[in-house]
Design a protein around this nucleic acid. Structure first.
Length: 171
DNA sequence: AACACGATTTCG
DNA sequence: GAAATCGTGTTT
């Protein structure tokens, strides 16, 4: 019996939640009512005001607002004018953190996967704990994984650009 | 009101 | 290696 993760799951530190999401099931209910289940294979952690690679480190803005709230909500933003990024907010109010979902077994790459599962700006602020169109379920699998530096954030400088906060599930 | 830029992907 | 493409934040 698959169980949806509840609020407390997301309230932990992003460095705990990011690897825990590997192997878990992302459930998506499409507008036509069909249901699809995807396996999360790659994530990245963005950790609060200190982390210069985290959008929230530049301050509280309308876009980053949701990251300053409670864990379990979605932070969605557009990158390079064409790709919607899917992020899960973690930790608690006033501690801005988020996990970027970078890969599913069915689609590698953060821009590709949002196109596949049809996630866009209308999912900004969606609650994974109560949504009727997207959530995460426990798969019962606890896969091995490797880590590495995050992609595309060299501008963040030392030491942030080298932090091993990218998590990849071993097939 | 105008501008610079990015947690990417794709093509040559 | 470079273009594509636009919301966001910053500057005028």
């Amino acid at each position: 019996m698959m169980m949806r993760f509840e609020r407390e799951f997301y309230r932990r530190d992003v460095l705990e939640v990011a690897p825990l999401l590997l192997g878990q099931h992302l459930v998506r209910i499409y507008p036509d009512g069909s249901r699809a289940i995807y396996v999360i294979t790659e994530t990245e952690a963005y950790r609060g005001g200190e982390d210069r690679a985290c959008h929230a480190s530049k301050g509280r803005t309308p876009r980053t607002e949701v990251m300053f709230g409670d864990g379990g909500w979605l932070y969605i933003y557009l990158i390079y004018g064409m790709y919607w990024m899917l992020n899960v907010v973690t930790c608690r109010e006033d501690i801005p953190q988020a996990v970027l979902i970078r890969g599913l077994r069915e689609a590698s790459g953060p821009g590709r996967l949002t196109r596949l599962i049809q996630v866009d700006q209308t999912f900004y602020g969606e609650d994974l704990v109560s949504s009727d169109r997207i959530w995460v379920e426990e798969s019962g699998i606890c896969p091995e994984y490797t880590t590495g530096p995050r992609i595309g954030i060299d501008y963040a400088g030392e030491p942030w650009k080298d932090m091993p906060w990218r998590f990849l599930m071993i097939l």
